[in-house]
Design a protein around this nucleic acid. Structure first.
Length: 275
DNA sequence: AACCAGGTCTCGA
DNA sequence: TCGAGACCTGGT
């Protein structure tokens, strides 16, 4: 049993920030680094079945974030204030930079189910089998050692960007520790130099693995929400500036609550037509 | 059966 | 700096 603070596993894993968590009966099963992790909510904490250290788990779940204070800070309008109440316990995760960047290069112009499939196929093709049917996310070297198999992963036109990114990391052309020391603006600009990383992906990885909680990724759905609910318009750059100004230093948290809410709204509209 | 998807790239104005 | 088109492919 471990106390990870206020945490709702379902909201946190279903909101689309990470692609590899699955519900298996009453456990959430995922892979962090080379560890299979099984988690279950119990009274008074989270039950953990894994060899991973508690410190690593606390780090992954950003336990140093004062969630109550952050949610209070982003509740700057009625819409987000309502979402924060509905989905309290949704936490941002601190993902591994290599895995996060590589995954989000795959996450362009595809829907969530397909993205999950692509990532899972990559793990199955190149990663280490850790447990029955559970694979680690492969290292750049594991991918490059049999790069020709990438064609069989259904990545489409993302494939060359994915492989090229693995090569850049393998050659040491990205220093993730150095990027972590950059400001948000520097981090975002630096990442955009790599093929397959544009404004949106740069923002995703800025907030999901480089600790820039003010980053506010804008995909088509968030763009619609910004227009309809806030009347924000214009280029990505303008929308980004407006959003960060409105939501403040924890804009990334606000973005994730909005994305999750819009996603649920969207899927329930399809599931229950009419009314 | 079309439409669309956690976009990016290239190119012209 | 901005907008328009093309783009792999699988979900829905």
């Amino acid at each position: 049993m471990i106390d990870l603070g206020h945490l709702d596993l379902r909201y946190t894993f279903e909101c689309g920030q990470a692609f590899r968590w699955r519900r298996r009966e009453d456990w959430w099963v995922g892979v962090i680094g080379e560890h299979v992790v099984r988690l279950r909510e119990e009274e008074g904490g989270i039950e953990v079945a894994s060899g991973i250290s508690k410190a690593a788990l606390r780090r992954y779940f950003r336990c140093e974030d004062d969630l109550a204070r952050i949610l209070n800070d982003i509740s700057r309008d009625a819409y987000v204030a309502g979402l924060v109440k509905r989905f309290a316990g949704l936490r941002l995760l601190r993902q591994d930079p290599w895995e996060c960047c590589a995954s989000y290069i795959l996450a362009t112009n595809a829907n969530l189910p397909r993205i999950k499939n692509m990532v899972e196929t990559v793990c199955l093709t190149f990663g280490n089998e850790l447990d029955d049917g559970l694979f680690s996310f492969p290292s750049p070297e594991q991918i490059l050692d049999k790069a020709h198999f990438a064609q069989t992963c259904g990545l489409g036109y993302r494939c060359p960007h994915f492989l090229e990114f693995a090569r850049h990391v393998h050659r040491g052309e990205l220093d993730f520790d150095e990027i972590k020391r950059m400001s948000y603006a520097e981090c975002h600009a630096h990442l955009k130099h790599f093929d397959g990383i544009g404004d949106k992906v740069a923002d995703c990885v800025s907030v999901f693995c480089f600790d820039h909680l003010e980053a506010f990724p804008i995909d088509v759905r968030i763009g619609k929400a910004l227009e309809q609910r806030y009347h924000f318009t214009g280029s990505y750059k303008k929308l980004s500036a407006s959003s960060r100004e409105h939501f403040g230093p924890y804009a990334g948290y606000a973005q994730e609550y909005i994305y999750f809410a819009e996603d649920r709204e969207n899927s329930s509209a399809i599931t229950r037509p009419g009314s």
